[in-house]
Simulated scan of single mutants.
Amino acid sequence: MKGLSATSVIGLADALIHWQIFFVLCNAVGLDQAAGNFAAFCVAAAFSFYLNVLYLFERETSVFFYLMFIGLMGSVSFGVGAIADVWRLPGLVTVASFSLLNIGSGYCFFRFVLFRGRWT
C-alpha cells in the first residue's frame, strides 16, 4: 500500500505541474494545445521520474525503457492536444483527459515495466 499511496501523491503533483505549465504556455505564451500539452508533459514527467527514483525505488533504472515511455506518452500528449485544437475544446478538457490517461498508464508503466521487481 505504501507504493500505491506514494505513487498517487507523486502522480497528483505531476498533474498539478502539468496543468500549471500547460495553462502558462497556452494562455501567456500563446502556444497551441498540442505543443503546450507536450511541453508540459515533458517537464512533469521529468519531475515524476526523479521523485519515483528518489523515494520509491532503490536500484538503477533502464534509461531505454524510460525513454520509450516518454516517447509514447509524449506522443499521446501531443495527440490529445492536437485533437483539442481541431475540435476547439477548452484547455481544461485537454489537461483533464490527458491527466487521467497519464496517471493510469504512468502508474502501470512505472510499477510493472520500468521498476518491476524493485518496488520497496
Rank of each mutant, 00 (worst) to 15 (best):
residue 55 Y to W: 14
residue 71 G to W: 10
residue 42 C to L: 10
residue 50 Y to R: 01
residue 16 L to A: 08
residue 57 F to I: 00
residue 20 Q to A: 07
residue 55 Y to A: 15
residue 96 A to F: 07
residue 27 N to Y: 03
residue 19 W to I: 14
residue 116 R to P: 04
residue 17 I to R: 04
residue 8 S to Q: 06
residue 20 Q to N: 13
residue 79 G to F: 09
residue 83 I to Y: 11
residue 73 M to C: 08
residue 48 S to W: 04
residue 77 S to L: 12
residue 105 S to F: 00
residue 14 D to S: 12
residue 93 V to I: 13
residue 34 A to F: 04
residue 75 S to E: 08
residue 3 G to M: 07
residue 112 F to N: 07
residue 4 L to H: 14
residue 102 N to Q: 10
residue 32 D to N: 05
residue 68 M to Y: 14
residue 23 F to C: 10
residue 1 M to Y: 10
residue 113 V to K: 12
residue 110 F to H: 06
residue 21 I to F: 10
residue 16 L to K: 03
residue 6 A to P: 00
residue 88 R to P: 00
residue 115 F to R: 05
residue 111 R to G: 02
residue 26 C to Q: 07
residue 76 V to Y: 04
residue 117 G to K: 10
residue 87 W to H: 05
residue 76 V to D: 01
residue 45 A to F: 15
residue 116 R to K: 10
residue 66 Y to K: 05
residue 42 C to E: 00
residue 104 G to Q: 12
residue 8 S to N: 11
residue 118 R to I: 05
residue 109 F to S: 01
residue 117 G to R: 09
residue 73 M to F: 12
residue 24 V to G: 04
residue 50 Y to S: 05
residue 113 V to F: 02
residue 56 L to M: 12
residue 120 T to Q: 10
residue 119 W to R: 14
residue 16 L to G: 15
residue 18 H to W: 02
residue 6 A to V: 02
residue 120 T to R: 10
residue 75 S to F: 12
residue 62 S to K: 01
residue 101 L to R: 12
residue 73 M to W: 11
residue 109 F to E: 04
residue 35 A to H: 02
residue 109 F to W: 04
residue 53 V to L: 14
residue 29 V to I: 14
residue 14 D to C: 11
residue 4 L to R: 13
residue 80 V to Q: 01
residue 75 S to A: 11
residue 93 V to A: 10
residue 25 L to I: 03
residue 19 W to E: 06
residue 17 I to F: 06
residue 82 A to G: 05
residue 103 I to H: 05
residue 4 L to C: 07
residue 51 L to R: 04
residue 46 A to N: 13
residue 27 N to G: 10
residue 4 L to W: 15
residue 78 F to Y: 12
residue 15 A to N: 05
residue 9 V to S: 07
residue 64 F to N: 09
residue 13 A to P: 09
residue 93 V to D: 02
residue 80 V to T: 03
residue 117 G to Y: 01
residue 58 E to C: 09
residue 94 T to L: 08
residue 69 F to H: 14
residue 56 L to P: 02
residue 2 K to R: 13
residue 14 D to N: 13
residue 13 A to W: 06
residue 81 G to V: 07
residue 42 C to F: 12
residue 58 E to W: 14
residue 59 R to N: 08
residue 87 W to M: 08
residue 29 V to N: 03
residue 18 H to I: 04
residue 73 M to I: 13
residue 56 L to Q: 15
residue 30 G to D: 14
residue 73 M to V: 08
residue 41 F to H: 04
residue 47 F to R: 01
residue 48 S to L: 01
residue 56 L to G: 05
residue 47 F to N: 05
residue 30 G to K: 07
residue 68 M to I: 13
residue 89 L to G: 05
residue 28 A to C: 05
residue 28 A to S: 13
residue 39 A to C: 15
residue 110 F to M: 05
residue 104 G to Y: 14
residue 22 F to G: 00
residue 116 R to W: 00
residue 79 G to W: 06
